[in-house]
Design a binder for these strands. Sequence first.
DNA 1: TTCTAAAATTGAGTCAATTCTGTTTTTATG
DNA 2: CATAAAAACAGAATTGACTCAATTTTAGAA
Lengths: 204, 204
Amino acid sequence: MSGLRARQKADRHRRIIEAAAELFRDAGYEGAKIETIAAQAEVSVGTIYNYYQNKGDILGAIVSMEVNEVLNAGQGVVANPPANVGDALDTLLGIYIEHSLHYLSKEMWRQAMAISTQLPDSAFGQAYTALDRALTEQIRALIARLQAIGLVRRDIDGQALGELVFNNMNMMFIEFVKRDKARIAELRAAIRRQNRILVAAIGV
Amino acid sequence: MSGLRARQKADRHRRIIEAAAELFRDAGYEGAKIETIAAQAEVSVGTIYNYYQNKGDILGAIVSMEVNEVLNAGQGVVANPPANVGDALDTLLGIYIEHSLHYLSKEMWRQAMAISTQLPDSAFGQAYTALDRALTEQIRALIARLQAIGLVRRDIDGQALGELVFNNMNMMFIEFVKRDKARIAELRAAIRRQNRILVAAIGV
DNA sequence: TTCTAAAATTGAGTCAATTCTGTTTTTATG
DNA sequence: CATAAAAACAGAATTGACTCAATTTTAGAA
């Protein structure tokens, strides 16, 4: 079953994603018509719906690539964190934030977030929630690491703290993508300021 | 200019909101067709669009009523908070959460949140952001009150703390409305657990 | 009362996502 | 090779939010 059909399938998947990514960037998510994506990918409209359940799922595939890359980059920090709680958190969250606009425009993020809330049970909705959980888990792992090193008090509830840090960052990120004018540097500074309260509380 | 025309206008507004609220609840947001809302409100489709810019704005009007009610209820807690930081936060956030499903179903919340992210510059998007800010401000006011009473350390950055608490609650609430099965009691317990870290850090 | 400009209403028409159904291509089998 | 079943494709048809030009209603002046 890995003959012609499978190859064509993979190729069509790729063509659709590439066409969509380009059009989403150029014309925006709403501006990119399925018909246009289909034309550019050289498939029919029906075929796109054979590959993806809806327009959102196409965007979802692009978002997944982005977040997985970020998760990968984050592993390095968890394995070898800066020797200071504040910097450790700032470095990990900094990686998330700095990577975030690499493939996705703010408008694409807005759409992706909206869809994941609107249709939490859709393929993309579930994938997005899983990605959020993976990020939370990575922050929790960093905290556990800092506890092991002795930089964070052992009696701190690492799970709760990880959720708190992720939730705050994520909410700040949502507000960030909602305002086209907002700058990355401001976002990071605001999050650092908020985390300072936590850092003071959990340091040994 | 407060004659017949103004009265009819107010009456049509009310009829549209009432019809929409009922249909959103019964058929869901997507399931409620503008045509049906118009029929039930005894106006034409065009008239609805004369009163509201789009379907989301109709939902927006309902959400605003809900949140304003919650803000009102919260004032009492800020004016007269429980004599204990953990309880004070829990009481205020508890009011928000317990009221939240009074007029709005989870599905309606999901749609409202999605629209506010998707179209942050629309009438509703801006109103929603303002409501979020008002809630954050109320939490900040509670913290300031607790500082004044002497329950919270004066050197704590009240603004940053307020944002942290609100962002975390809001994110948890988003996850809550995304899962139809999630119970209010569980949500409150999870938030209490997260806030415990903060409470330990900021108490005198 | 009658008339007129402004305001509001109407519903048929437009547009784009999604669905549906008949056709074509691929694979597996004899 | 021939062929039948399965998988995938195509694009016309449907659906529902939203627009707009024509019509109706209202407020106030004469």
